[in-house]
Design a protein around this nucleic acid. Structure first.
Lengths: 354, 354
DNA sequence: GTGAAAGCGCTAACAC
DNA sequence: GTGTTAGCGCTTTCAC
């Protein structure tokens, strides 16, 4: 690996001039500039970011931690953050916490050592406590909120989405509705649960605590919960609202295992659309989320914060669409709408009671 | 952010001693060690990896580039590489080339600036040409081979897998078999194609060039290709071998759109198992790959190379399972077996000719 | 417009 | 065992 010194030597200029020619070309005579550029190119010179960052005290790097890389929702979040970061001249290093607090902690420490200028995270429930170890680092929470103070959050209207899902089932004539919800120490689960309860209550429907089962967010959990909810033939819900994409798959498979046919014997609404929601049989009615936009916005808000943190007029470097919004300094909370997509996993109940 | 200097001051020792106490505790008196550790803990000290790496000329970092983060196969590859890297004391920074040469180039340059000690990549077809810009960097190609000389490759037996898939269809009685294959500048596509052709020929079946369609690797391509292959009612294959997971979804949906029912009207075998291969209707017969192991092995081979590259007795740091294999210095080519999983998308053809 | 020199935070000789 | 010092590759005053 050739260094800037090699370039300077080859171009017959001093180290300082070589540096300037490459990073701030306008401060150098045209002739020397081309000479230096030529030398750099000839040597395949690539600046050593470690040295540059150490000196400049800024890495142009942001940390990105998702909770479950294998969940396509998180993968898309990650991709859109990375693409947006690149567009703004940052590189986002992606780590995966696997929904484990311990792994999340280690990921944070790892990133910390590499001095990211900001952090975008789909937090686990332990994150609020860990936040203290990140002094003055701009943080954006994505999809979920940990309750940590002073962080920007970019989420979806989970309560509203859950209301739509539940109301859809009620409108179809269902009265015996159960819910499979995620871990109740995760904000999305809590909010979707709240939307469900509210809507049930408002419709005057009875609340059956034993018909609301909580699980972690994986397919297994959905399978287990659904199995439990559906295995009492005479006394089971006629419809299910499932609070996340992976668990929905599990629930559908459990129903299938029990010989229940969707939507005739059981209606299911899932939260989050996905490839398999569309390809399963029957195609799933779901609440869909603007996933890509979620990632993009999270990143743009972070970038904006970084620009303001660093210099008074750094805004000039930002694209208009980021700037056109009023430019707040502090943390903001962005909430995007969801949408009900009606497919074939929901229909009126086979037997209407009452 | 407090630095080592702050720790040294607080512990009342010199900078050097503080450094030693933290990185090589055995070289320091027990008392001073505990004092330094206490100070470090109290300050929430986190070593600055930029400075350490700059000085030590090693970053304990590896670059990881996958071609399509949204493809669950690649996501699992990425996760298993990252987990394995962590287990060996490295951090793998994950970037996504999106199957685009340009993005791959930029990803490589980005990584280069951060001085990774090795690179694990699912290469696009342009990678072999780019390799020159990576002087002396150990590289492991994962899943695909670009043809670049001197790199370790960890792949699956694609020819064998394609043979099994094709033979399975032939054994069921199919004679009119088509294939949807990926880009023919990607090794996996070429090899799967080869396995298909060989097996057809060996069975004495005629080769219909117009029944072999190539596409990029996404769902759309599979959809388009299948639509084309299946739209001539009297003259269409009775079975299809589809060369990758995403395209298989597209093919199945296209068949559905055309009113063909699987497996009665059409048999389909896919390559690579996935969540939706299992949940689709009907569940898909596929060639499955040891995806996680692929990622793990790629990383372990890279780590081994790094150990040998750096010091004669670095092996001591490696776990037994890596060492038990004979320890080659040069690049190796690892090839893992695939497996045929028979589900419900294949059956004997409705009409048997001949 | 250009060069000399200091210093980012850390580790590794080398003294003591 | 511990301290002093040089230097990793770069940017940035400060002179000229």
């Amino acid at each position: 690996m050739s260094s800037l010194k090699d370039v300077a030597n080859l171009a017959q200029v001093s180290l300082a001039t070589a540096s300037r020619a490459l990073s701030r070309p306008e401060t150098v005579a045209t002739l020397t500039r081309t000479r230096v550029e030529g030398a750099a190119h000839q040597l395949g010179y690539q600046p050593n970011m470690l040295a540059r960052s150490l000196r400049q005290r800024e890495t142009r790097t942001i940390g990105l931690i998702v909770a479950d890389l294998l969940n396509p929702f998180h993968a898309l979040l990650a991709k859109s953050v990375q693409d947006t970061a690149e567009r703004h001249g940052y590189v986002a290093f992606l780590l995966n916490s696997d929904e484990q607090e311990g792994k999340e902690s280690r990921a944070i420490d790892t990133l910390r050592g590499h001095l990211p200028q900001g952090l975008i995270i789909v937090p686990t429930s332990g994150f609020a406590r860990r936040l203290g170890s990140l002094p003055r680092l701009p943080v954006v929470e994505l999809d979920r909120v940990s309750g940590a103070p002073g962080v920007t959050t970019v989420t979806v209207d989970n309560v509203g989405g859950a209301r739509m899902a539940t109301q859809h089932l009620i409108d179809l004539g269902h009265r015996d509705i159960g819910m499979i919800v995620g871990q109740l120490d995760i904000s999305t689960a809590v909010e979707r649960h709240r939307g469900f309860l509210e809507t049930m209550r408002r419709a005057g429907l009875s609340y059956r605590p034993d018909w609301v089962l909580s699980g972690h967010h994986r397919e297994d959990d959905g399978h287990r919960a659904a199995r439990k909810l559906l295995s009492v033939p005479g006394d089971r819900p006629s419809a299910l609202f499932v609070g996340n994409n992976e668990m929905t798959v599990g629930a559908v498979l459990a129903a299938r295992d029990l010989g229940l046919r969707l939507p005739h014997d059981l209606s299911i609404v899932g939260f989050d659309d996905s490839r398999w929601a569309q390809t399963m049989f029957p195609a799933l009615t779901v609440i869909s989320q603007p996933t890509e936009q979620l990632g993009t916005l999270a990143c743009e808000h972070l970038v904006r914060q970084l620009a303001y943190a660093h210099s008074g007029n750094a805004q000039l470097a930002l694209p208009a669409r980021v700037l056109n919004k009023a430019a707040p300094i502090g943390p903001v909370r962005v909430q995007l709408p969801t949408e009900l997509i009606i497919r074939h996993s929901t229909s009126p109940p086979a037997l209407v009671f009452g």
